[in-house]
Simulated scan of single mutants.
Amino acid sequence: MRNIYEGLKDKNDYSVTVYLNGQKRLFTEYVHTIYSYTQWLQKKGIEWDYILVYVRRTRAVLCFYKKGDYLHSKPDFSIRGRTKQGW
């Protein structure tokens, strides 16, 4: 089994899919920090309910965040982000 964190190199490590009302709104392949990305969404007026965060290089799903969750620059899986069984 591959390590889910394999592929993290500290530069544009993440890809993010943005959802609103259960519908995919936007996919961004190169994301450096999760917090900055959500700030960019807010600045552009892009509404969202939750985001799904992937390791960009391996496409492994890391976690998802609901709007209003505390966001740090990088996911800290011990206290932030959510994971779903089967992802």
Rank of each mutant, 00 (worst) to 15 (best):
Q39H: 07
W48T: 08
T33A: 01
E29P: 00
Q42G: 11
I46H: 04
S73G: 15
Y54W: 08
L26R: 13
P75R: 10
R25E: 15
V61L: 01
C63S: 06
R57K: 13
L41Y: 09
K66F: 14
E47I: 07
W40D: 13
Y54S: 08
K66Y: 15
K43N: 11
D69N: 13
R25L: 14
G68V: 11
V53R: 07
C63F: 05
V55A: 06
Y35I: 04
D76Q: 04
E29F: 03
K66L: 15
A60S: 09
L52C: 04
I34R: 03
K44P: 02
V31W: 01
F77I: 14
W40A: 13
V55T: 12
T33P: 01
H72A: 12
Q42D: 15
Y54V: 08
I51P: 03
L52W: 06
Y65N: 06
L52R: 12
Y50C: 10
V61N: 03
S73I: 00
R25A: 13
T58M: 03
T28W: 01
L62A: 04
I34D: 01
R59S: 13
Y35E: 15
Q42Y: 11
R57C: 00
S36F: 02
R56L: 02
L41Q: 07
K67I: 11
L71R: 12
